[in-house]
Simulated assay, not measured.
Amino acid sequence: MEENDFVVIPATEKHTQYAQEICDEMAESAKARGTGIAKRSPEYVANKMLEGKAVIALRKDGHWAGFCYIETWDGSFVANSGLIVSPKYRKAGLAKAIKRRIFDLSRELYPGAKIFGLTTGLAVMKINSELGYEPVTYSELTKDENFWKGCQSCVNYDILTMKERKNCLCTAMLWDPEEKAKEIEAKMKEKEEIQKEKDEKLHEVARKQTLLERIEEKLRNSLKVMFA
Rank of each mutant, 00 (worst) to 15 (best):
E2C: 04
D104T: 06
E13G: 01
A57D: 01
I9Q: 13
C151F: 12
K187E: 15
E130L: 09
N146Y: 15
K114Y: 03
E216T: 06
V155Q: 12
P177H: 07
E192Q: 15
I159S: 13
C23L: 00
R40G: 00
H203K: 15
E193T: 02
C68M: 11
E216P: 10
Y18E: 02
K163D: 08
L118P: 04
H15W: 00
E179T: 05
G93V: 09
F116M: 09
N80F: 01
F147V: 06
S129A: 08
L212T: 09
V205K: 12
L109Y: 05
K53R: 11
E145N: 05
S81K: 03
R90D: 09
R214G: 04
P10V: 02
V225W: 11
D74L: 01
A228I: 02
A46V: 00
V78I: 07
S76R: 04
K224I: 14
W175I: 07
R90H: 06
T137F: 06
A186G: 11
F103P: 12
R207I: 06
E21Y: 03
R59Y: 08
G150R: 01
P42E: 00
N80Q: 12
Q152I: 11
E193R: 10
E200L: 11
E179S: 04
M162H: 06
E134K: 10
T16N: 00
A228S: 10
T35D: 05
L141I: 04
T137I: 07
I215H: 10
K96P: 09
E25Q: 13
T35E: 10
V225D: 09
M49D: 03
G34I: 03
D24V: 02
T142K: 08
Q17I: 03
E217M: 04
A95D: 11
K96T: 12
R40I: 01
T171F: 02
K99T: 08
E183Y: 03
S222Q: 14
S76T: 05
A54E: 00
L212P: 05
A57F: 01
L174V: 06
V136W: 04
R101K: 13
L160D: 14
Y133W: 03
L223W: 15
K166C: 02
K201G: 10
T35C: 08
K208Y: 06
T142L: 06
H15T: 00
A46S: 15
A38W: 11
I102R: 07
D24Q: 07
V45M: 01
F6Q: 07
M49R: 01
R220G: 09
Y110H: 12
M125Y: 05
L223F: 14
Y89I: 12
E51I: 00
D199Y: 14
A27C: 10
K201F: 15
L223S: 14
E164A: 04
P87G: 02
L223D: 15
A186T: 07
K191P: 04
D61N: 14
N156I: 00
E213T: 10
E179G: 02
G121P: 13
D74T: 01
T210W: 10
Y157R: 01
E164F: 02
L202K: 06
E28H: 03
E28S: 08
G121I: 07
M226R: 10
T119Q: 01
I37C: 03
W64N: 08
A228G: 07
N221E: 13
D158G: 05
F6E: 00
D199E: 15
